[in-house]
Amino acid sequence: MTLESDAIAGATIELLEARLRRLNYLLTGDTSWTGVPAAPPKPDTLDETASRRLARLERELERLSKSIPAVREVIQLHDRFPELFSSTPSQNPPEGLTTQNLASIVLSYATAFPETSSRLSSLTDLPIPDAQISASLIELQPKLNKLTQVQQEQAKEVSALRIRTAKLLQRWYEIGLVGGGECWAEWEGRLEDVEREVRREEVIRERRAKEL
């Protein structure tokens, strides 16, 4: 009886070790040169163990649930309805649905079947381009790349010319228009001063002529 129990315990340990190696391979992908999954590396410190890391994740999740209402609601929803978070294989229909429910789901997509079929048929009706035309287009690709580069350089030159033109227009406006207007204003001021002096001299002459 003892030998049988020891054999069962040894087989159980071997199965657990095999499952552990498989799990480690799924997580890390490390194997030896023979293809056997390598043993998981030992953590450097106690804080790097799986239990400590899980405890940190649980504390972080608890902190998020206290500070963020959405996280708390998701956790409560998972606790109340865990079946919502379990993935259902696509080849198996979901449990709890009757044949009538499944038929209604299929019939709801019935209008999409002819449309999909017509699109697939249109793909078969599209003509395949000639191989020589495709080859000529491929040969033109280096020339198109050069033309694109030339176009980019021309765009840079045009941009630089626009900047220079804007600066020249600003210069002409400041010197030609504003400067010319200031010059005309100064000349008009001088003419008004001269006219004032001429009128004053004429008035003086008229007074002197009357006194004589």
Rank of each mutant, 00 (worst) to 15 (best):
M1A: 12
M1H: 14
E4N: 09
S5P: 02
A7W: 03
A9N: 07
G10V: 02
G10T: 11
T12Y: 04
L16Y: 03
E17A: 08
R19K: 12
L27G: 01
T28S: 10
D30A: 03
S32I: 03
T34Q: 08
P37R: 06
A39I: 13
T45E: 01
L46N: 01
D47Q: 15
T49N: 00
T49D: 00
T49S: 02
A50H: 06
R52W: 01
R53H: 09
E58S: 10
L61E: 07
R63Q: 07
R63A: 03
L64T: 09
L64S: 12
S65M: 13
K66R: 09
A70V: 05
I75G: 08
L77R: 08
H78D: 02
D79V: 00
D79E: 14
R80Y: 02
F81S: 04
F81M: 01
P82M: 00
S87P: 05
Q91Y: 04
Q91M: 04
Q91H: 01
P94H: 10
E95H: 04
G96W: 04
L97N: 00
T99N: 14
Q100V: 15
N101S: 15
N101I: 10
N101Y: 05
I105A: 08
I105C: 03
I105H: 06
A112N: 14
S117R: 04
S118V: 10
R119F: 13
S121Y: 01
S122F: 02
S122C: 02
D130H: 04
A131C: 06
Q132I: 15
S134G: 11
S136A: 11
S136Y: 04
L137I: 06
E139I: 01
P142A: 01
T148R: 15
Q152A: 13
A155Q: 12
A155W: 12
E157D: 07
V158Y: 09
S159H: 12
L161D: 06
R162M: 14
R164H: 05
E174T: 00
G176V: 01
V178I: 03
G179L: 07
G180W: 01
C183G: 11
W184D: 15
A185Q: 13
E186L: 12
E188C: 11
E188V: 13
L191P: 00
E192F: 15
D193T: 14
V194E: 13
V194H: 08
R196V: 08
E201C: 05
E202Q: 06
V203I: 10
R207M: 08
R208T: 06
A209C: 05
K210C: 01
